[in-house]
Computed example of a mutant assay.
Amino acid sequence: MRTKNMAQIPAKMKALVNHGPHDYRLEMIDTPMPGPNEVLIKVGACGICAGDIKCEAGAKMFWGENPWVKTPVVPGHEFFGTVVAMGEGAEEHFGVKMGERILAEQILPCGKCRFCKSGQYWMCQPHDMYGYQGKIADGGMAEYMLFHPNSVIHKIPDALSLEDAAFIEPMACSMHTTERANIQFEDVVVLAGAGTLGLGIVQAAALKHPKKLVVLDTIEARLELAKKFGADVVINPAKEDALKAILDMTDGYGCDVYIEATGNPRGAVQGLEMTRKLGRFVEMSVFGADVTADWSIIGDRKELDILGAHLGPYCYDTVISLLERGLITSKGIVTHTFDLDHWKEGFETAHGKDAIKVILKP
């Protein structure tokens, strides 16, 4: 095993550990050591995702009859760090060196299923997921983190700020969502939800130069950021009839593309109403509750294309390049930083309306 300095890697490390809904604890646990083709990083920062908030709160999608989350597990999937130790063969396996800043995509694909073999690794059938699947895939809310041999690793230029580096994973998800929308020059695009992922989508969609980019949110500060990032029109549905506004600007037809990024069931129902016939509806949110809608809208009334968006496959290197060139940014999106000792305050802040992206810095 190669290490930067073994004496600097403690036997125990501070980590947030998920033991179940409403049962997250800050603990001292064993620092993982890399085996063959494994890499240990010193975590630089880890974002708190809406999924992390809903997981801690006991959302059904995480804690159903057969819980998807395998506890105990260190949460956190929006991480990056510096290589401090490598197991035998890891340098050649990943093409990384000691001291480099890297991240791993949150999914751990098996490499053997039909999806992996066809290049669709992000939909791997038996996959593990960093931050959710027990000791197999502990996440980044800890001082150190182990990247396993089947990790999908990307290098981070030294020029990127800590905030930009922590923004890479959510921005990759935003870019993949934008690609799924297949935005054309003549499209009127409506994005519902200007949180971290939504504001990433605004930036990516603006680079596609649609005819009109409209952003919906109930928080004025987020709408102001959306305008800064390229939105042509912003609407606060709490103050204005958003459906009427979209119909008025499209001669009564509705938008060509609707991207749902609120995580609120109403956002999904609104999108079905707002999208024109033969339009495209893209769903990328994590919901804490079931969504009930009139599905006849999808088929009999409008013949909509309903598209999902999962993770950020094949987007990381592009996101890193765009960040490096200043074409997208985390400025204004990363609003709060906490250390691990104050993780509770971090989660509470992330759940509130004054924050957009909250990161933990071990």
Rank of each mutant, 00 (worst) to 15 (best):
I219S: 01
E224W: 05
S296T: 15
K212P: 03
F281W: 03
G271W: 01
N236C: 05
D294C: 07
Y258M: 04
A293Y: 15
R222T: 04
V282K: 00
A261V: 01
V215D: 09
V269W: 08
I259Q: 00
V233D: 00
P237M: 02
G299P: 04
K227S: 06
F229M: 12
L304S: 10
K212V: 03
H209P: 01
D305E: 13
A245G: 02
G263Y: 12
I298Y: 10
G288H: 07
G230F: 02
L213D: 05
G230V: 08
L304R: 09
Q270D: 15
A289R: 06
N264E: 06
R301V: 10
G271K: 02
R276S: 02
T275G: 08
V233K: 04
G254W: 03
A261G: 08
S296P: 03
A221C: 07
P237H: 06
L307Y: 01
P210L: 10
C255E: 02
R222G: 10
I259T: 04
K244R: 12
K244T: 05
M249P: 09
V282R: 03
F229L: 11
I246F: 13
G279E: 00
V286F: 13
L216C: 13
E220A: 15
L304V: 10
K208R: 15
Q270W: 14
G263R: 10
Q270K: 12
L213P: 05
T250G: 06
N264C: 11
V291S: 02
D248R: 14
E240D: 08
R266F: 14
L272T: 02
D300Y: 15
I297H: 05
L225H: 08
K277V: 13
E240V: 14
V234A: 07
V282Y: 00
E260K: 06
V215N: 09
G230P: 09
K228A: 10
D294I: 09
W295K: 04
V291T: 12
I259L: 08
D294Y: 10
H310R: 14
I298T: 15
D290W: 07
K227F: 00
D300K: 13
D232F: 01
D251A: 15
A226S: 14
I259V: 14
L213R: 03
K244C: 01
E303M: 14
S296W: 10
D256I: 08
T292L: 13
D256G: 03
R301Y: 03
D251M: 14
L247F: 11
L207I: 14
D217V: 09
A242C: 11
A289C: 00
G271A: 03
I246R: 06
L272W: 03
V269Y: 11
D305S: 14
G299S: 13
T262M: 05
K277E: 09
A261C: 12
D294W: 03
K277N: 09
E240T: 15
L225Q: 12
A245M: 08
E260C: 05
M284E: 02
G254R: 05
R222A: 07
R266K: 15
H209I: 10
D300C: 12
D248I: 10
L272V: 02
